[in-house]
Write a protein that binds this DNA or RNA. Structure first.
Length: 424
RNA sequence: GGAUGGGUGGCUGAGUGGUCUAAAGCACUAGUCUUGAAAACUAGCAUACCGCAAGGUAUCGUGAGUUCGAAUCUCACCCCAUCCGCCA
């Protein structure tokens, strides 16, 4: 949600932002509703003022005849007021629904484009491995090494179901533990966040109403979060934070659930796209400064790049184009890792900042140096998800015999140099 | 699932139909005093919207209702706490 004042002063920015993000939103509709809202508000308020004045008279004690006259006048006024209040209620409900749809303004540096195909590569790292043999995909590699069981996964969990087992399970734990150590050294507070979260928090983070169909919903009306960002952002909902603690940096861990409602037929095999996974997520709340948001956004993304570099996996980073940005995002970077089995880069991480889009909805404030309450800024970025990261690990480090060399950084946590269960 | 009690400003918390313009305390800000600090004292101190301003309006969990007038009464819903039951 944006500030209505900002919208009124900068309708062109909103218009241009919506165009860039390919979001169908007509700012003129909102401005017309706003104008009407203020006019009705004015008449409601003046009627109420009159009512309050009369009410004071009655309370002070006037002679019975005057009192009776006043009361009967107020009865009439009450009817007028009721009509105006109903008008106000009606206009407010369309106002609010429009306000929830206003897209945040993308940064100038966001490239134009329609879809993820138009994202702009801003960095490329690592040497794409050249195999002297035909490389296998992660499905074959992991099945052969007893790391995953898709058949039973589907039997138990349905479409996109999987079990990680043996070295697959152990490799996951190794990734989490290494990531924990790596990211905590950057000064984050680790936090294990709930995935089962109330509707309110999803509204606040901007996943609802627009993205509701991609969420699992419980019979109690709660939803399952697709990222720890939701729970961690909810942590400070309705709070006034101490700005001395800024930036507040959380490393959140949670199971993640996604219906993948719009992804039928995409990545139907393997571990790239699953309904249930786990993720370490970086979340930051900071003071309301564009420069600070930009600085921290770069930092967050760089953290994940460094982590990937430490594993030795080739990647590139893209600046997401306007059409690939969510409603609330100002700018986003995706990091994509090399997947030899598909001969292309696949997304592993996504780093975005929102200015006060989320905090305004979540009511997360702080007192600035002038003592004025302001909405904080928020940012988040994937630290590392499992099992998707396993795809790139096993495919990039596979050997001719189907064994997998464990990246050096993971060995202390995994306990072995090689995964080789092919003949066992 | 059953029972009971609650939801008031940054925090604690008083307030059962009209000077509520929401008490009081804490915290915070400024000042006095002090070498400096603390303490004490004095003053200030919720947010949003409309308005050039004077000022006006709203907000006591949310929504609806009763009333000339609602933090206060009624109804529905949401949330929290405690006890009982069940449970890793």
């Amino acid at each position: 949600m944006l500030d209505i004042k900002f919208i009124k002063e900068n309708p062109d920015l909103i218009r241009e932002g919506a165009r860039k993000k390919l979001i169908n939103f007509n700012v003129d509709d909102l401005l017309a509703v706003e104008e009407k809202r203020l006019a009705i508000l004015l008449s409601v308020e003046s009627l109420r003022a009159e009512q309050n004045r009369a009410s004071d008279e009655v309370a002070k004690g006037i002679d019975p005849a005057a009192r009776e006259l006043l009361v009967s006048e107020m009865k009439l006024l009450k009817e007028q007021l009721k009509i105006k209040e109903d008008e106000l209620k009606e206009i407010m409900s369309s106002w609010q629904s429009l306000m929830l749809q206003v897209p945040n303004v993308p940064d100038m540096t966001v490239p134009d484009g329609l879809s993820d195909e138009d994202n702009e590569e801003v960095k490329k790292w690592g040497k794409i491995p050249e195999f002297s043999f035909v490389p296998k995909n992660h499905i074959d590699l992991m099945q052969q090494n007893g790391m995953v069981d898709f058949e039973r996964g589907v039997k138990v969990a349905g479409f996109r179901g999987y079990f990680l087992k043996g070295d697959g399970a152990l490799l996951s734990f190794a990734v989490w533990q290494y990531a924990q150590k790596f990211f905590l050294s950057k000064g984050f507070t680790p936090i294990i966040a709930p995935s089962l979260v109330r509707r309110e928090v999803f509204l606040g983070t901007g996943y609802i109403p627009q993205g509701e169909e991609d969420l699992y919903k419980t019979q109690d009306g709660d939803f399952l979060a697709g990222t720890a960002e939701v729970g961690v952002m909810g942590y400070h909902m309705d709070e006034v934070l101490n700005k001395e603690e800024f930036p507040k940096k959380y490393l959140g861990f949670s199971p993640c659930f996604r219906r993948e409602a719009g992804s039928h037929g995409k990545d139907t095999k393997g571990l790239i796209r699953v309904h249930e996974f786990y993720k370490w997520e970086q979340v930051i709340l900071c003071e309301a400064s564009h420069e600070e948001s930009v600085k921290l956004h770069e930092w967050l993304n760089r953290n994940t790049e460094e982590f990937i570099e430490s594993l030795g996996i080739p990647y590139h980073t893209v600046a997401n184009c306007g059409g690939d940005l969510g409603l609330g995002q100002v700018k986003k970077y995706d990091i994509e890792l090399w997947v030899p089995g598909e001969n292309k880069y696949r997304e592993i991480s996504s780093a975005s900042y929102f200015h006060d889009f989320q905090t305004r909805r979540l009511n997360i404030k702080y007192k600035d140096s002038e003592g004025k309450l302001r909405f904080a800024h928020s940012l988040n970025s994937t630290a590392i998800p499992t099992p998707r990261i396993l795809v790139s690990i096993v495919e990039n480090f596979q050997n001719v015999d189907g064994s997998i060399t464990v990246p050096e950084a993971l060995r202390p946590f995994f306990g072995k140099d090689t995964i080789n269960n092919i003949n066992s």
